[in-house]
Amino acid sequence: MNTRVVNVIVLLVIGLLLIALPNPQKLELKELHLPNHYHYLVETIEPELVAKMIIDDFGGFTIIDLRPASGSNLTKIDSALSLSLEEMLRRDSLLDIKYWGNLILVDDKLERMKMAAYYLSQNGLPATIMEGGFGQWAQQILTPTFPGDLASDLEVEQYKERLAISNFLQGKGDSLGGGVVIKKKRRILRRVVRQEGEGGC
């Protein structure tokens, strides 16, 4: 037989064998590594800005709580949707998330937030992670500490604003007292790490 025909048949058989191969899915958390070639573009946002966005009813964004659902989560963000990282990896499709607007990821651990951001970006969904996660949220937003007796006027003003935000978010008052005005127009996202990937070429 013509060698050319043989070659074509061999290649076709290889192709058919490829279909029969197992197709492992890397949907286990322990298998999701942040690749080292991958200079990941992590965008972070400060908790205070997130709080202001919630209060202003900014719209166009969704806060995702990445922790596994459990009753012991003390710190909560009321308007956040719960979608644990584990669940996210198990899902077949992330298509609906496309319509959630800007994604802000929150978790207790930085690594998990990064993983989720990486996983989402792999699926074409850019996401922002909240600086410091729930820890910083609790510390800075929910229980702001008074700066002390020697604080300057500016620091006192900032404290008042934080206290107002804290009270509002915890349902202790439905208006922002103390003459605090939160500006509508502001830069939302702060880019912290900006690194480009290098092409293979």
Binding site: L11, L12, I14, G15, L16, L18, I19, A20, L21, N23, P35, Y38, Y40, S93, Y118, S121, Q122, N123, G124, P126, G197
Partner: peptide, 26 residues
């Protein structure tokens, strides 16, 4: 127009790697 930092054809079309390979061979 970033559709994915590391998106591949099998992931994009939601088919197995083997089937994608077969189509590429064809």
């Amino acid at each position: 127009t970033l559709i994915g930092e590391r998106i591949t054809l099998p992931e994009y079309f939601n088919i197995s790697y083997g089937l994608t390979g077969f189509f590429v061979i064809l």
